[in-house]
Design a protein around this nucleic acid. Structure first.
Lengths: 363, 363
DNA sequence: AGTTTTTGGTAAAACGATTTATTAGAGACA
DNA sequence: TGTCTCTAATAAATCGTTTTACCAAAAACT
């Protein structure tokens, strides 16, 4: 039979349906070699030392020719490695999560991992179930972004803004002390004395820590934190709506103020709108400091003065920690890894002037 | 041996390391049954009909008690189903992708699928490689969001705003004709005659289709599309920067205009800033219509008048199509699935007044 | 010439499920 | 009594890899 490839002995694997990728066994049989040999060669195993280069070349060539792709699931099953990690976030479509996720992706992709995302949107049940679901999908580790992680799973976990002091889980956190001081000092330097605050929603892990840091910084700077000028965002939405409502409550209190330190940029944007609706201009009548520096911040009108969190870096850092821990299970991850904030001065803050208190009171 | 469970014959599986989940084999041996029986019962197979309820109960109880979790990879290997799909997007942190992704997630999660995301950020190489990478991870289908899909893979594919007429891939698209008319007619109704346009970047799939639709609508409405008033966004960034630059070019042309139809909301935000820097107020001096209605749109100042795409729904629709095709390979997906746009009137557009042409010319 | 080492591989046992036969005993039926 | 069906299971093959254990022939060494 000229031109026809000689099949080696043994039972030939049955051919696959069209379109189905070729298996190692088929590839081996097409070469008259055993799957073992191919596996050793294709994985550049130490044990393929004795195989002559010529044979190796044949193998590689055939693999390329028949477009051989190892089946990930089979490989994972055998090697007990999946090269995938799970990521838990509150919401896909908010600037915060997206930036952290981008950082995570950057690091993971280049390290050969893939990631499974699940966004819980603050639903109790999802927060509880999703980690398990991801674990059932054999992720080798978990990153929880701004999400209270309460599960006890036998895989390494890194949180971004987690703040829980769980043994074995690493927290990537911002230096909130420094962030609070940066924001407040900026306002104080501009002459503001009556400063209002909008705290984060109660479910956000950063809320309490940040508020404590602000109180502390305020004490240092001799600025009162007047309870009438402190309000909290309520509701699950990721839209500026919640900041808008919080700011309206502030205005309704009747208590005058010239500066606002908002929990995040989205909140600041909502607040600015509320002020505008009340006839107050930003920054002429009230100065607003945001938080996070999501990328809309620079393009809002007015562009937000804000405390930048290096969100993308925090994501990358989380991924790096996790990858390290996965690769080397003995590695002792630090309990906390702190990154530094940065004040970004833009247009939403300005020097106080004498008429401002009145303007605010009139609102 | 009272109180001690009798082990059935055969080699007992070796116990696992602490923390490792229990396997079906172990569970079976702990019950003195075979893995086969457990598998049939746990999967509610038709063939477990003859197993008495009492035995079934014992099995379920033991499974719960030992917290048995089937290994997804093993199961996938055998059943050739992975219940995962890949999603290709340009960028995680832009409102468009995020909303579509949210819709996709909504549908998939509830159908028991998980998804792997890869964002290519318009890099040629990533656009080429990632589909293959996802396929190698055994995804059962692919959703490509605003991404030119050129690969030829043996799995079903759905694109969102793909526009390529590839056999076998379904396109979820907006009715651009209607969208263009909605936007233009709104401006015309407000008295605008000199209207500028910012086209999308050349890599965006919507760019050409939308532009054609706009030209067509303009003809219908007797509005000229003056080449001097048509510009295109350039550059890969997802920030309003690119819109900002495009708008500046428009201003530098010296050609007067009173309205702008921007390619998307991000672009509109950048453009509004450019106008403001040139001393032009929106909407008093120039009216701006955005596109997409990302959630920042409502909170920008001024709030954007925009053409809403039902992005979340488009994502859900894509997921639904894909899931259907996966479940039933014979199902003939439609080539195109069109959704309808909606005009959202907010603050960035207003009636023309007599002084406007001059204002624009002065810029 | 006899022993050891190297060369070039292969067979078979995992990994953890699912699925297809197969089977032993009990009842039903003729 | 013999055959047939039903019950309650199990053994073994399979998915596609990796890995361990083994082997025959050739080469090198004593």
């Amino acid at each position: 039979m000229p031109g026809k490839k000689r099949k080696s002995g043994g039972s030939a694997p049955r051919p696959r349906a069209q379109g189905q990728p070729v298996s190692l066994k088929q590839l081996a049989s097409s070469l008259g070699l055993s799957p073992t040999t191919l596996s050793l060669v294709l994985n550049h195993s130490e044990k393929a030392r004795s195989i002559p280069q010529e044979t190796k070349d044949r193998i590689f060539e055939a693999a390329r020719g028949l477009n051989y792709r190892p089946n990930y699931f089979a490989r994972s099953l055998r090697s007990q490695r999946t090269f995938s990690v799970g990521v838990l976030i509150p919401e896909l479509s908010d600037g915060y999560s997206a930036l952290v996720l981008t950082g995570i992706e950057d690091y993971l992709m280049q390290s050969g991992y893939i990631y499974l995302v699940a966004s819980h949107r603050h639903k109790e049940k999802s927060i509880e179930d999703y980690p398990r679901m991801l674990y059932d999908r054999s992720v080798e580790g978990l990153i929880a972004v701004d999400t209270p992680y309460e599960q006890e799973l036998p895989i390494p976990v890194v949180t971004v803004s987690g703040h829980k002091n769980r043994s074995g889980v690493t927290n990537i956190i911002l230096n909130h002390e420094s962030a609070a001081e940066l924001g407040l000092r900026h306002l104080v330097d501009l002459g503001h004395k009556k400063i209002a605050f909008i705290k984060g929603q109660s479910f956000s892990s950063d809320t309490e820590v940040r508020w404590e840091a602000i109180r502390h910084a305020a004490k240092q700077l001799n600025i009162p934190t007047n309870p009438k000028l402190v309000t909290q965002m309520e509701g699950v939405s990721a839209s500026p709506q919640v900041g808008h409502e919080a700011a309206r409550k502030l205005l309704q209190s009747g208590e005058p103020f010239t500066g606002l330190f908002a929990f995040n940029d989205i909140c600041a944007i909502g607040a600015i709108r509320a002020f505008r609706e009340a006839g107050l201009r930003v920054p002429e009548d009230v100065s607003v400091v945001g938080f996070d520096d999501i990328y809309e911040a620079a393009y809002h009108i007015p562009a937000l003065t804000t405390i930048r969190q290096p969100l993308q870096r925090m994501g990358a850092l989380a991924a790096e920690m996790l990858a390290k821990k996965i690769a080397e299970p003995g590695y002792e991850m630090p309990e906390f890894l702190q990154v530094e904030p940065e004040l970004i001065e833009r247009e939403s803050t300005a020097q106080v002037n004498s008429r401002q208190n009145i303007a605010a009171r009139n609102a």
